[in-house]
Every structure is written in structure tokens, then in C-alpha cells.
Amino acid sequence: MALRIKSHWWNDDNARSLAEIGSALAFIAWRIAVDKAINLHCERFVYRDDAQRLQVIQEYLVFLIQVADRLAFGRFEDDDRRALITSFAKKCIEHLQDNSVDLLGPGQYGDAFVERLNTRSGEYADFELGTDGPSYAFLRHLGFEIQTLMGQQEENRWVIDQIMDKDGWDAYKGFAKAFGDLFE
């Protein structure tokens, strides 16, 4: 069943701040990331535990933050782009923190995500996002990072292919459409 994403504002007449748009993007990205993590399980890939599943969700969030930054480039001045992506990332951290506490118990989970985001931002900087979507290298990096998290056990051996051929593309397409819709 396809994930239904609500990406139009209820009242189109009101102007939205970049922080409000960033918050909406974070909610959409969280839903997409969770959906893709669930899809891996449905495709018979095996998670060791909830902590590992949350790590996969984080990789998708980092990927989608990179996508948002590329989509915002040229559409906004640098300061506005920075404000949008910062509010988006902060809301992603809030979603991650809340859900991690619910699943794993008390702790500070946002700091590790910020480290991951900073590291991956440098890694993704060399990859292109063109008008037709992310480059092969862009999707391969997402797949590689998730493959690394899930391990090389027999049942998870082909997870990189699933990410590159299907799930990564689906995540990109759903998010890019929602991103455009929020600015209509």
C-alpha cells in the first residue's frame, strides 16, 4: 500500500514562515523514513532490534535533509535556505528524540543524529541531484550506509540493491513532490 502524504496547506490564503514549512517537511520526512524502514522488513530484511531500525530511519532522514537542501538551492537566497534547512533538521531531531525515548527509554538521542548529519553532509556534498533525481552515487551512498548498519548476514545481503533500485528512489520522489507542493 502506498504511503499517503498530505502536502498541501489546509488554508492556502495564509502565508507560511520558513519555520512552519521546515516543520511540515520534517513531519513528511519522518513518515517517509519510517515507511521505508517498515518496507525493508516487509521485503524480508531483518532488524536486530528497534535501535537498529531507528538507525536506518536516521539514515533516511539525513538523505532527505540533503535532498531538501539541493531542492532549496536556487529557489531561495542563502540565508532563507539556511533557515529552512535548519528548522527542518531541528524538527527531525525532535521527532527522533521523542520516538527514541518511546522505544528505547530515556536518553539524549539528538546529539548522535547531529554528528551523523554533519558527517554525512560532507560525504553527500560530492554527489549530484539533477532535474531527474539523485545520481547513482547519491543513492549508492544511502544504500551503503544502510547496508553497513544492517550487516552482511545472509538475509540482509542485498539491502543495498533494494535501497538503490526502489526505496531510495521512492523516498526521493515522494519527498520532492511534497517539497514542491508546500510552496504552491
Rank of each mutant, 00 (worst) to 15 (best):
G133Q: 02
I160A: 12
I38G: 00
A176K: 13
V46N: 03
N14H: 12
R4S: 14
S100T: 03
G143E: 05
W10G: 04
W30I: 08
Q152H: 11
G151Q: 08
K90A: 13
D35T: 12
N39M: 10
T148G: 09
W9M: 01
A24F: 01
E59N: 06
V56R: 02
D161Y: 08
R44I: 11
L96I: 12
D111N: 13
N118G: 14
D35Q: 13
L117C: 03
V62Y: 01
Y60L: 10
L64A: 06
V56T: 06
G133T: 04
R70D: 04
R81W: 01
G143F: 03
C42N: 12
Q147A: 15
A26I: 12
E77V: 14
L71A: 06
G74H: 01
L103I: 09
D13P: 00
I160K: 07
I146M: 03
D98W: 00
G110P: 08
G180Q: 09
Y47R: 14
G180T: 09
R44S: 14
E115T: 04
F45G: 02
R48C: 00
R140Q: 15
D49P: 05
I65C: 11
D126K: 15
P134Q: 02
N39C: 09
D181W: 01
A24P: 01
V62D: 02
W10Q: 10
D161H: 12
I85S: 02
F73T: 15
L84W: 04
L129V: 15
R81Y: 04
T148L: 11
Q153A: 15
M150S: 09
Q97S: 08
A15Q: 13
W30L: 07
Y60A: 06
V56M: 04
Y47V: 13
D170E: 15
N99K: 08
L129Q: 04
H141L: 05
E59R: 05
A26L: 11
A51H: 07
G130A: 10
G133D: 01
D35L: 00
L104C: 03
R48V: 12
A89S: 14
L129G: 05
D98R: 13
V101G: 05
I163M: 04
D167G: 00
D181P: 09
D50A: 11
L71D: 02
G74I: 02
E154N: 13
Y172D: 04
N14F: 09
A33M: 02
I146G: 03
D181I: 06
G122M: 05
K166E: 13
S135Q: 02
F76V: 11
S23E: 11
Y172P: 04
D80L: 08
H95P: 03
D13E: 10
A176T: 09
D35H: 14
A29T: 06
E123Y: 07
T86V: 00
N14G: 06
S121W: 00
V114D: 03
G22Q: 05
R116V: 03
V67C: 09
M1E: 12
Q66E: 10
F88S: 13
E77C: 12
I32A: 07
E77Y: 03
F179S: 08
D79L: 13
R75D: 02
L40W: 03
R48Q: 10
F138A: 05
A89D: 07
A178N: 04
H41R: 15
F138I: 07
H95T: 11
Y47K: 14
A37Q: 06
K91E: 14
S23F: 01
Q97T: 10
L25E: 02
L64K: 06
G130Y: 01
Y124N: 05
S121Q: 09
A125T: 00
D111Q: 12
E184W: 00
